[in-house]
């Protein structure tokens, strides 16, 4: 059954073409030296220079990064707590409701979440005079969405950690907080790191919540791009898109280099172990 007939190949190529065509076109047009985005006018880097000098874009980018870093950090801390509570404590007050709430952002469309939070924040502002729409509301809104993703990422790793490890640490005299920082956290560190990266990118990518919760003068990058893209084609957006493509490719390259290096190191270690085992086998057989 592992045939690959022409139909399968054609279909696969078409789907990949569909997926990659807009991205390739975007990158090519980012070098287009013409005011009309879709009319080819030769190669240029001038849109890159213009985007780099666009203060609105730069401010938005800085704001987006600030929000994303704060969101990712808060989400990972809250998500780790939530994951730990849900996997390690059999029952605690409000566990059912808590689990439900944690699933809400994964299930409901972001517009709903955005509207719910918007009405909450404007009501609070109406009643207490704060918070005003801006960094705080964006940060909280993004975190509400991202906590769930961080929690499920960390939870799936936490479930795999052998409870005997934590018990062993406790048995050897580690207090519960020491158990967490000396044994549990190192064991789930990779999951925590990838949850941080995931929530960072989710926050950087979030349009709807950002659009609903941003205030005057505090527009993160997606909101700026969104409002410009609504007006029509814009060479600077092509540039911004192309740059994210370069970043993704660079990240991919780094990851594969790192993985190859690790695989090589593993192989070297295993070879050394094998050699040692052979030596041991020889010496023990000659001794007996």
């Amino acid at each position: 059954m592992r045939r690959f007939p022409w139909l399968a190949t054609l279909w696969t190529v078409l789907v990949y073409g569909f997926l990659y065509l807009p991205i390739v076109v975007l990158v090519i047009y980012s070098f287009n030296d013409s005011r009309m985005v879709t009319v080819w006018g030769g190669w240029t880097l001038r849109w890159y220079a213009e985007a780099a000098a666009d203060q609105v874009v730069i401010d938005a980018l800085v704001l987006s990064l600030e929000i994303a870093v704060a969101t990712a950090t808060a989400s990972v801390v809250l998500g780790t707590c939530a994951a730990y509570a849900l996997t390690r404590y059999r029952r605690f007050p409000g566990k059912g409701l808590f689990t439900l709430l944690l699933n809400v952002p994964l299930v409901l469309p972001t517009v709903v979440l955005a509207m719910v939070l918007l009405l909450f924040f404007v009501s609070m502002e109406h009643l207490f005079g704060f918070p005003q729409k801006g960094f705080t509301t964006l940060f909280i809104g993004h975190t509400v969405m991202c906590v769930s993703y961080a929690a499920i990422t960390i939870m799936s790793r936490l479930r795999e950690v052998d409870p005997a490890l934590e018990e062993a640490a406790m048995d050897l005299g580690a207090r519960p907080s020491q158990v967490f920082f000396l044994v549990t956290l190192p064991a789930i560190f990779q999951a925590v790191a990838s949850a941080w990266l995931l929530t960072l990118s989710l926050s950087l990518d979030e349009v709807v919540i950002s659009a609903f919760l941003s205030g005057p003068g505090t527009s993160p990058l997606p909101v700026v791009i969104f409002s410009r893209a609504r007006l029509g084609l814009n060479p600077e957006i092509n540039v911004i898109g192309a740059v994210t493509v370069y970043l993704v490719l660079a990240g991919l390259l780094l990851a594969s280099v790192w993985m190859a290096r690790r695989a090589k190191q593993r192989a070297r270690e295993n070879a050394a172990l094998l050699r040692q085992a052979q030596v041991e086998a020889l010496t023990s057989s000659s001794a007996s």
Binding site: P22, I23, V25, L26, Y29, V37, T38, L204, D205, V207, P222, I225, F226, A229, G232, L233, I237, N238, I240, G241, T244
Partner: peptide, 11 residues
């Protein structure tokens, strides 16, 4: 980014 991917179709 999602936004960029959707925008790209405008081109």
């Amino acid at each position: 980014p999602f936004l960029i991917r959707i925008y790209a179709w405008k081109n």
